[in-house]
Simulated scan of single mutants.
Amino acid sequence: MLLGYLLCPGKTFAQHYLDIQARADTDKIRIGEHVKLELSARVQLEGLKGASFKVFFPSLPDSFSHFEVVNRSELDTATAPGEKFFKQTVTVTSFDSGRWEIPALKFEVFSVTDGSYDSVFTQPVFIDVNTVAVDTTKAFKPIKAVKGVAWNLLDYWLYLVIGAVAVLLIIGLIWYFRKKPVKAPVVTGPVESPYDMAMRQLQELKGEKLWEQGDIKQYYTRLTDILRNYFEHQFGIAALEQTSAELLQNIKPVTILNQQRDKLQTILIIADLAKFAKMQPTPQEHEDCLTKATEIVTWTKPAVVREAQPGEAPKQQP
């Protein structure tokens, strides 16, 4: 295999066609200073005779052998006649004093042409990490007092501008709300009572002739929704959220409504069969359900308070 032959130890071809280096910009630093470690690989293309290859640079961990990686540059490539260059700069530092070694780094080379694979190692790099020199022969100097800085209005101009804008904004809002005309209350007409609404909707349902047109499910859905809305607004029963069985159970405390329990049960049974079981009630049953719904609403119509005459207490008529 061509690449294996070129990189094989003891062969001069490896030294001639592939040159790798790990070079530091300095060999002495003080604690915390940076070292730029330049990793490079140079490949002589002429000797490879058209072989396709890939070079993989060393993968340094974030912390290793008393060193910490500060930054990694992108891999830079360049091509010259007969040569190809690869370069990456890794910035490292150390916070331990002493002479430390950046160990030999492994470059990996893979031949796409014949699938051969090999690795080459650099020489280790030694870095001396020194502490800051302190002259112990000199006497300690006293701590200097804190010096005051003269107050300057220009140093606070931004805060003054913000404060002035805030004050002007508050004054403007106060003036606006004081001058804002008070809108006269909107007088609306009388609100339709639950009874009147239910009776109107039942008459509208009768006029729509839904069951005559074959829309049985929509007819019973509208009919039961009218009753449930009426119960909810007139008696405070959450009828829209209850099943038929729950609704029949919850009308028991309302005496006047419970008196119409049998009619309501008949309507709910036929409606559920028509909506969910696809039963086809007879025309007589359609009309009978609408009649029973009208009778339920009429029976439970709230009493009217007759207007009291002067000196007379209000009386409630049935």
Rank of each mutant, 00 (worst) to 15 (best):
R222W: 03
S244C: 03
Y117E: 15
E312Y: 09
W175M: 11
P58G: 03
L6Y: 09
Q234D: 06
A166V: 08
Q309H: 10
P81Y: 14
L3H: 01
A239V: 02
I267A: 02
A22F: 01
E192I: 08
Y17D: 06
W100A: 05
F177L: 08
W151M: 13
V161N: 09
Q317G: 10
L75A: 05
A293E: 03
W175E: 11
E101G: 09
I170Y: 00
P190S: 13
I20L: 04
I102P: 07
A239L: 01
P318H: 12
R261Q: 11
Y5K: 14
K87C: 13
A22K: 02
L210D: 04
R99V: 15
A150E: 11
V43R: 02
S52E: 15
A271S: 06
S116T: 07
Q284F: 11
Q234F: 02
T79F: 05
K106I: 14
P142M: 03
K206R: 12
N152Y: 08
K206W: 14
R178Y: 13
D62L: 10
L158Y: 13
K209M: 07
Q44M: 14
S97C: 09
K252T: 01
E33H: 10
V161S: 13
K292Y: 06
L18N: 01
P318C: 12
W151Y: 15
E232I: 06
E108D: 12
W175L: 14
I20P: 01
P103A: 05
V149P: 12
T89K: 11
G207A: 12
N229A: 14
I171R: 07
V70T: 09
A41G: 04
Q316E: 13
Q260D: 05
T79C: 02
Y219F: 05
R306S: 14
G172D: 07
D27W: 08
A308T: 06
L223K: 02
I226T: 02
Y117D: 13
L39P: 08
A150N: 11
A22Q: 02
A184S: 11
R30C: 12
P310F: 04
L160P: 04
D25G: 03
E83K: 15
G207H: 14
L6N: 07
V182F: 07
I256L: 06
W299V: 15
K301D: 06
S244Q: 00
F121K: 12
G189R: 15
G115W: 04
Y159T: 10
E241Y: 00
F57L: 06
A150P: 07
A78C: 09
I270F: 04
T131L: 14
F53D: 00
T266S: 12
T91D: 10
D76C: 15
P142Q: 00
T224P: 03
I256Y: 01
I251R: 00
